[in-house]
């Protein structure tokens, strides 16, 4: 079959493609999938899946990935894949927890420790991501390769810092933060900030433009290096805040902490309806919808009694299918979206 035949308006494949690439399909499909999952699991569990306590559980479980993924959408929107999101988040968690414990050990107050922990986490994440963006643009190395190197480097630093030990934040402190909804506030404020920047400012439009067609963007004066740095800085902000949400939730850091975070975040972004090529079909809520969907899927599978060996497989298969679907590019165009 030739390209001409594929483009024939009457062909079934072309019809399906036009439905799939319709902007409303792209926007609504993640919500439809989430609703279907909720509907199916609700039926299967006699309504327990939709009980308010279970929905709170799902929300809490999704919060770390949702926070990191919200920042990650800024990077994905430019058509770049960042493989160092998980390693950055975990390193920030490690360094900030060490700082907090050091302050407590030195007789400092909990309040001071919390402020320092928060500031260190955010600044370190922004610095790491900013540095990655600069490395990529200055050395003219693809973002993917830079982040692979950064992922390895950051994991090695964390290994050197932690070795075989586990850092534990006293549970009364994490409980106090959770009881005061600090994790929800962190996520809520960051999400609102991200929505405004991504959908209502020139920055968001330009990032999507770069993802749509980098060459056109460059020719109209939207220089990738500047905006890539911005995307990474905002992404880093999400990772630093994600580290704080993770500390509030689990209160401990070891070398194995959040080892699947990067995969989970990418899965969430893609499942949330974003193309792996970014561009005009990027939405900042993709990470949140995706994170909730993945979490709901996992929660539901446990509730209906799916074997634990299969759960990881189902997630992997889902990711593969979605990436395969999102990989589809229009034929013969010079850039991701022409």
């Amino acid at each position: 079959m030739t390209d001409v035949a594929i483009r024939e308006p009457s062909s079934l494949r072309n019809k399906l493609l036009s439905v799939w690439e319709n902007r409303w399909t792209t926007r609504l499909m993640p919500f439809v999938i989430l609703l279907l999952i909720a509907f199916a699991f609700s039926l299967a569990t006699g309504g327990r899946f939709l009980a308010s306590r279970n929905l709170t559980i799902i929300l809490n479980q999704a919060l770390v990935v949702a926070t990191v993924a919200t920042g990650g959408t800024f990077i994905f929107a430019t058509g770049n894949v960042n493989l160092a999101m998980g390693a950055t988040t975990v390193l920030c968690e490690t360094v900030s927890a060490m700082a907090f414990l050091a302050i407590l050990d030195a007789g400092g107050s909990v309040e001071l420790g919390l402020v320092v922990m928060f500031v260190i986490s955010v600044i370190l994440a922004v610095f790491i991501m900013g540095f990655s963006a600069i490395l990529s643009t200055k050395l003219n190395v693809r973002v993917l390769y830079v982040t692979i190197v950064m992922m390895t480097l950051l994991a090695a630093i964390q290994q050197a810092l932690l070795g075989g030990s586990t850092l534990t934040i006293p549970s009364k402190i994490t409980r106090m933060l959770a009881n005061n909804n600090v994790h929800y506030i962190i996520f809520g404020v960051f999400f609102a900030f991200a929505v405004v920047i991504f959908h209502f400012t020139k920055i968001g439009r330009t990032l999507r433009f770069i993802g749509t067609n980098e060459i056109c963007a460059h020719q109209t004066g939207k220089f990738k290096k500047d905006y890539l740095l911005l995307a990474f800085v905002i992404g880093g902000l999400g990772m630093g805040l994600g580290a704080m949400v993770a500390i509030i939730r689990s209160g401990s850091v070891s070398i194995t902490t959040l080892s699947s975070l990067n995969m989970d975040t990418m899965l969430a972004i893609v499942l949330g309806g974003m193309s792996v090529f970014g561009g005009s079909k990027s939405f900042v809520y993709a990470g949140v919808i995706g994170a909730v969907t993945v979490t709901a899927l996992q929660n539901g599978m446990v509730m209906v009694g799916v074997d634990s060996n299969l759960i990881q497989g189902v997630r992997g298969l889902l990711f593969l299918l979605l990436v395969a679907a999102a990989q589809k590019r229009p034929h013969g165009l010079p850039a991701p979206e022409g």
Partner: peptide, 23 residues
């Protein structure tokens, strides 16, 4: 109900919560 390999506290808490949801 058997878990996947629990590699960190986050995964343990998630498993406990999902078990609770199942009853």
């Amino acid at each position: 109900i058997f878990s996947e390999a629990i590699k960190d506290t986050e995964t343990l808490v998630t498993f406990i919560e999902n078990c609770y949801a199942k009853g």
